[in-house]
């Protein structure tokens, strides 16, 4: 994407109604405050990376927006309406996990569940539309070639393509991605994140992308939300990913170095108990 185009899109995005809106949002479990006073607008087509150490509330933020976790204070809106459980406006891409070969589902079934899996009944009447939708979503992510194979036999990268198709098939306003690149190799990390960014932009969906590793998504990111120990910072990557900002957030010296087109953060691991590549558990 050219610089000018990116600029133009950014301007257009800012004038539109935000897809996600948090106002004075606070989340605390007993004494422990994950974040407080969080104001956040995510515009249509915007790609927001959510970064931070384990336990900083990244997954909890996803759960709040999915309506699974009530805020301790403040408000959260999706598309101008308060968050609700099982919103049709949200597509969700989880981390890749092995699917057992004995679970009888094909790629197209997985994507189909994203379309109408939450409905009661057998859904025999909407079959034609379902098929068209699923085929279109499969084609969009380049998964049409293996859509009839059992999901359990597919590679991690192939499965994540299907998950992106599953999240996109219902044309959501917001895409919540919770560590979708975990356990993928570098080539697949890039492929999956570009897929997410491209389709979100094409459909004017806002993307919240939780990741512990910013580099695979760095060229795609519009803004960063960095959460650390109850503090946070929102801004463009070059504003947030600096030694000064992260040192302030972590409360301990953190060095941010640019190596080529990569960002290397040194010092934050110590705060994070030395475990950087670790799956954030649910609270």
């Amino acid at each position: 994407m050219s610089q000018a185009l990116q600029q133009e899109r950014h301007v257009a995005a800012q004038s539109a109604e935000p897809r996600v809106r948090l106002r004075s949002a606070r989340l605390a479990y007993g004494e422990r405050v994950l974040w407080d006073g969080l104001d956040l607008d995510v515009a249509p087509g915007e790609f927001l990376a959510v970064l931070g150490p384990n336990g900083s509330g990244k997954t909890s933020l996803m759960r709040v927006l999915l309506g699974l976790q009530p805020l301790s204070a403040g408000s959260a809106e999706i598309g101008g309406e308060p968050v609700q459980r099982g919103s049709r406006r949200i597509g969700y891409v989880p981390q890749q996990r092995a699917v057992d070969v004995t679970v009888a589902v094909r790629g197209r079934d997985l994507v189909g569940l994203g379309w109408d899996g939450h409905h009661w009944g057998l859904g025999l009447r909407g079959r034609r539309e379902r098929r068209q939708r699923v085929d279109a979503a499969l084609a969009a992510v380049g998964a049409a070639g293996y859509s009839d194979r059992p999901v359990g036999l597919l590679s991690g990268g192939e499965q994540q393509r299907l998950r992106v198709a599953q999240a996109l098939v219902s044309d959501p306003d917001v895409l919540l991605c919770d560590e979708p690149l975990l356990s993928l190799d570098l080539a697949h990390q890039r492929m999956v994140s570009e897929l997410i960014a491209r389709h979100a932009r094409g459909r004017e969906a806002a993307v919240l992308f939780v990741t512990h590793e910013i580099n695979p998504v760095l060229p795609l990111v519009d803004r960063v939300l960095y959460l650390v120990n109850g503090k946070f910072r929102v801004g463009r990557p070059e504003e947030v990913m600096t030694s000064a900002t992260l040192t302030e957030l972590y409360g301990t010296p953190v060095e941010v170095v640019r190596v080529g087109d990569r960002i290397v953060v040194a010092g934050a691991e110590a705060v994070n108990n030395g475990v950087h590549h670790h799956v954030e558990g649910q609270p």
């Binding site: 699974l68 459980r85 099982g86 589902v105 569940l113 899996g117 999901v151 998950r163």
Partner: peptide, 23 residues
């Protein structure tokens, strides 16, 4: 079973996404 088949299948193959979609 006919009533709950789709959401149940969803929950069986893909619990996290099913929960996210309101199943």
């Amino acid at each position: 079973m006919a009533m709950i088949y789709r959401p149940l299948l969803f929950a069986s193959v893909d619990q996290d996404v099913a929960v996210a979609r309101g199943v």
